[in-house]
Design a protein around this nucleic acid. Sequence first.
DNA 1: TTGTACGCGTTATCAA
DNA 2: TTGATAACGCGTACAA
Lengths: 342, 342
Amino acid sequence: MKKKNITIYDIAKEANVSPTTVSRVLTNNPLVKESTRKLVLEKMKEMDFTPNEAARSLTKKQTNMIGFILPDITNPFFSQTYIEVERRAHELGYTVLLRNSMNRSEMESTHLREFVQRRVECIVFMGGRINKVDSDPNEVEEMLEVMERVPLIMVNGQMEGVECHRICTNEEDGIRKIVSHLIEQGHKHLSLIGGAEGISTTDVKVKAFQEEIEKKGLEFRDEWQIYSGYDIENGRHAMRELLQKDPRPTAIIGINDMVIYGALKECREQNVPIDNFSFVGFDDIFPSDIVYPSLTTINHNYEMLSTEIVHSVQNIIERKPVEKEILIDTRLVIRESSLVKK
Amino acid sequence: MKKKNITIYDIAKEANVSPTTVSRVLTNNPLVKESTRKLVLEKMKEMDFTPNEAARSLTKKQTNMIGFILPDITNPFFSQTYIEVERRAHELGYTVLLRNSMNRSEMESTHLREFVQRRVECIVFMGGRINKVDSDPNEVEEMLEVMERVPLIMVNGQMEGVECHRICTNEEDGIRKIVSHLIEQGHKHLSLIGGAEGISTTDVKVKAFQEEIEKKGLEFRDEWQIYSGYDIENGRHAMRELLQKDPRPTAIIGINDMVIYGALKECREQNVPIDNFSFVGFDDIFPSDIVYPSLTTINHNYEMLSTEIVHSVQNIIERKPVEKEILIDTRLVIRESSLVKK
DNA sequence: TTGTACGCGTTATCAA
DNA sequence: TTGATAACGCGTACAA
């Protein structure tokens, strides 16, 4: 089953040329006579030759690989971003190395180390440490060390003391769009659930939420803003808490779509009519179109997000000028969950 | 920002030893005096040295990479499988190269070529061409060529004329479990929607469905078995068709969970009470626990699936004996959608 | 316990 | 248009 590794030397011998010439046809060097090129190509086909990328990387000092760290690919928000990045990177000849961190710092470290070792040409970082408002000095130092060797792009995050390229969803504006929409629907009592204090994506949203509410002359109630985490179960807990309040809010915004799924589930289990509330999520992951009621939410513009990521990656690698910070605008997708019923 | 690439030679010079010795500490060779090892490690830290994996791969003739081709990582079925594989592979020191094929043959070819070029040590293949009942001769030939150089494992698929390791979900048994469950619930009129004729995973299910129905003394109605594809929209179409039948079935099985999401959606749009039917899916992807009604479905046992995949990968790479075909049993997860109401 | 010399498969430099 | 020859950075047989 295993063949001997055949190399350009083998091809050279068969074609009666030097290895150099074989290498030339491999790199599409135009300084090769057409007839010899044809001959060499023929022999390569015959012998089923494939150049060894490791050897190539070694001499060319470039691997055509980029590393992508994200918390959890089973979360549609990340997979929807990743797949677009993979596609576009592929078009430009790059191989993406995907690694899940599960938001665990040691995993992130491991992945970073591996990326450096494999000499990826750029690292894209989402989630985890880059969303901590108070960054860990050790993590900062590690990032800086990595960045001395590999350029790094942070997506929807940042670290104090780590200056690098950033591409971010305009989350403030997303929240404003949600608040405006709910007020238009006649709501006066808005709640925000999910997330965690000290995590930048949460803090940004909470701040924007509070500001926008007060700007519109509504009342911000502390007890209607519940930090409860990011997943479905966390959403259930928040909703459970909310249902015990008196008075209750009439509209509920989720830090992401997932927590709203949980909130809906909790209402059902407690036999609380869904219609009692308007719900709005954030991310527009695919299940939001199929849950019941379908979920009003903020779409990240995944296409533009991924386009900008790969675009930046490319320019950074090619040492072209790149904007240090790129903001991606969002879009409010109105579905059933936020429309006034009865 | 860019440092000169520092190598074992630089370390050697700094530590007053030979490059060989540096290499030895890198590979944890015990034949190094403890004091020199310490010295070398120190210098490595000081100079922020990281071995170049490409150079390593070149001499060791092993890359520690495995390739993973699947149709679409945004489909939770695949991401739930992939993430487990990544985790386990990582524990064994392997890097997984993930590539999405979107079920397109040319993409698969591109990815296969790249994998060979990068000298991955094993390829895991899901979806696409390996699910065609009538395999394309060109695709078969390509697979065989690849397999002369890299071992390959097919997950939930096979190709006539391509003998290789296979790890499969026991889909027949899954379908039988569903049918039994529905009959226990008192159903006599079962329908199966989704999938496509000539795709092995579909054909296997359809066949098992028909056989099991007849074995139980029920009637298999051709018009209640609708090939309509694999995604949400396809599920809607099938349901639309089903709603026009007279008589209608009372229980609806989906080729996967996605099509049932579509079916539920279609019922709502047409104001047909969900309660008129029992629904059962296949795959147990995560939204099935949060859609309403929550979906009864077949769980793939992702843990065992991924364990077996990585286990096979490892044994194949290490040339240990491996079972040619491994069957993974499923589990019926009963939720609201299939329980008799009223 | 350590070092020398060579090989891994390619690309790049220079000369022919 | 082609061919020697030297890198690229590391591992390993062999010698010391």
